[in-house]
């Protein structure tokens, strides 16, 4: 595995296309996306259902292969990696958070968080334990370490998932609608954690959402429609969530009319 950085971008996609067959007809879920995310940048991807935002995130995460185009993460061209190399790259350099938490039910919260390290064959020495304790303190999960996922609330489960994504100290965090199953309070709490990670630790974050109240935490918002980038809105272009929502509604209306 090559760890050296070959690009200025934390994540870069070039003419990214992902085609699927549905009912015998091919269609592009992602249709030529060019996206650049700098190190330490927090990008939100918004779009309506079927706009290709989750697929784009999955491509960036290397969970599926692109039909054409390239994804570069820290300069590493994912399509050039074998499945094994890609998997190892993913567990070392990427942190992924899902909408449905995807915690393994028969592992405790602590075991779930440590899972990527164990999968990597890393020894759980005292420094790792210290790091775990610090992380769980940060996520306010110290009391829940020995509990199984089904004993945790949705917010707690998502924080465990976040802990799992962060334990390997990834350069990039990818979050696929992380607040989709959470109430407003929990949702804001998660967003605050993302914000802190971005601001204080300088981690690049790509977050897929359709909620303006979540997207507003990012430094810019990329809007997708029919698998294409239709707008790239910098943080300065909107004052608050309602303004962002209005711009997003407008983009959606124009798209629909087209």
């Amino acid at each position: 595995m090559k760890d050296e950085i070959k690009s200025d971008y934390a994540v870069e996609t070039r003419a990214l296309v992902k085609s699927y067959y549905r009912g015998g007809v091919s269609f592009n879920a992602v249709d030529g996306i060019d996206l650049q995310v700098k190190p330490g940048e927090f990008v939100a991807i918004m779009g309506a259902s079927g706009s290709g935002k989750s697929t784009a995130l999955h491509l960036i995460a290397g969970l599926t292969r692109a039909t054409s185009g390239d994804v570069y993460v820290e300069g590493e061209r994912l399509s050039s990696l074998s499945d094994r190399a890609l998997t190892i790259f993913r567990r070392r350099r990427l942190g992924i958070v899902f909408q449905s938490y995807n915690l393994i039910p028969h592992l405790t919260a602590e075991e779930n968080v440590l899972f990527p390290l164990r999968a990597d064959g890393r020894k759980l020495d005292e420094s790792t334990r210290d790091k775990l304790r610090a992380l769980m303190r940060e996520l306010e999960l110290e009391e829940q370490l020995s509990q199984y996922p089904d004993a945790l609330s949705g917010g707690q489960q998502q924080r465990v998932a976040l802990g799992r994504a962060l334990i390997g100290e990834p350069a990039v965090i990818l979050a696929d609608e992380p607040t989709g199953n959470l109430d407003w309070t929990s949702s804001q709490r998660i967003c605050a954690i993302f914000d802190k990670l971005n601001r204080e630790e300088g981690r690049a974050i790509i977050l897929v959402t359709h909620e303006p109240a979540v997207a507003i935490w990012s430094s810019r918002v990329v809007v997708l429609q029919d698998g294409r980038v239709v707008s790239d809105i910098p943080r300065a272009a909107y004052a608050d969530a309602s303004e962002l929502a209005a711009r997003y509604q407008e983009l959606a209306r124009v798209g629909a009319e087209r």
């Binding site: 969970l63 499945d83 094994r84 998997t87 190892i88 567990r91 995807n102 393994i104 990527p116 999968a119």
Partner: peptide, 16 residues
């Protein structure tokens, strides 16, 4: 398959 999917997403290789 879902659980295996999670594991793969978290870095379990195909061979593993």
């Amino acid at each position: 398959r879902w659980r295996y999917g999670v594991m793969r997403a978290l870095g379990v290789t195909r061979g593993e």
